[in-house]
């Protein structure tokens, strides 16, 4: 297997030596400094924080109840009463955007948390033990990776009802392969490092070596891929919503808000109904991308300050 990932392992050598020589904070400080230099990434992180807090505090901020209908005022344009207009059942768009943020972000975060967890465990086991275990696990990864994910999603979501839980589980159960490969790669190159070998000779158990010695050193790439993954999941939920298989109304998600706005008439005559959920998806996915990029650079030792 060797160590083909020379390029990416630099940071960890640096980090490992630091365990002996420097206080760990200094590394995070360096990374933070690097991250702060990336204006776009910083700006995106602020936007994301704003969106996340808006979602958390939706019940306080939102002017209405998300399912409260005002049938006589359906499709009202943005104005004083309804800041961002109303939808076809006269529900306040701003309110539904806020609650939709909750749903979309919950789907994004939990599915990615799930897939990162599975991916890390599988990748760590495969990478650490190698051999037959590695071969079997990686063939399994290959099988899942070869499935066009949308086909899988459609099949599974039509089979089970498209509820929040189904979507999250399906995203988590089939989204972990990338992480698994990544983590395995890191482990392969880390497991023959001196500090791991040292731990082994000291008789420390495998699982402790995996979790307290190797894993922290592989966190960088994992965090980056998680960040990028959340944006991907939000987009995937939107695509499923277009096919009628996303989060089901009345629960608002950005995806299904955009979907119910598909009709030509609404596109032309009620632009606010489609524009705002669309913008929210765009901004959020972009922000996750920029944050991910910023983190990648911050973790990358090749990129100098």
């Amino acid at each position: 297997m060797g160590q083909p990932e020379q390029k990416t392992t630099g940071i960890f050598e640096y980090k490992n030596s630091s365990i002996l020589e420097r206080k760990p904070e200094s590394i995070s400080k360096i990374m933070l400094r690097k991250y702060m230099k990336n204006k776009l990434a910083v700006f995106s992180a602020i936007i994301l924080l704003l969106i996340i807090s808006a979602a958390i505090f939706a019940p306080i901020i939102a002017p209405y109840d998300p399912s409260e209908q005002h049938l006589l005022e359906a499709l009202s344009p943005p104005g004083e009463k309804y800041l961002l207009g109303t939808d076809d059942l006269g529900r306040d768009t701003l309110t539904r955007l806020l609650y939709g943020a909750q749903v979309s972000l919950i789907v994004g975060f939990t599915s990615v948390a799930g897939s990162i967890f599975i991916g890390t465990v599988v990748g760590a086991i495969a990478g650490y033990f190698g051999g037959l275990i590695d071969a079997i696990l990686m063939r399994f990864v290959d099988v899942i990776i070869s499935f066009p994910s949308l086909f899988l999603l459609i099949t599974l979501v039509t089979i089970f009802e498209p509820s929040l839980m189904t979507l999250i589980s399906v995203f988590a159960l089939f989204g972990w392969t990338g992480t698994a490969r990544l983590v395995r790669g890191e482990f392969l190159s880390l497991r023959s490092r001196e500090f791991v070998l040292a731990a082994k000779t000291m008789g420390i158990r495998s699982w402790r070596i995996i979790f307290s010695h190797i894993l922290p050193n592989a966190m960088g790439p994992i965090v980056v891929s998680a960040t990028l993954g959340i944006g991907g999941v939000i987009l995937a939920e939107t695509a499923l919503s277009y096919l009628g298989l996303g989060i089901q109304p009345p629960k608002p998600s950005w995806g299904n808000m955009l979907q119910s706005a598909q009709s030509l008439k609404i596109m032309i005559e009620a632009w606010w109904f489609t524009l705002f959920p669309g913008l929210m998806i765009l901004i959020t996915v972009l922000s996750f991308n920029f944050v991910g990029d910023g983190l990648r650079d911050a973790f990358d030792p090749k990129i100098n300050e």
Binding site: G231, L235, T238, A239, Y242, L258, G278, I281, L282, V285, L286, N289, F290
Partner: peptide
């Protein structure tokens, strides 16, 4: 290109 990545295809 970022716009392209972040915009839903169907849209």
């Amino acid at each position: 290109s970022f716009l392209g990545i972040a915009t839903p295809n169907f849209w």
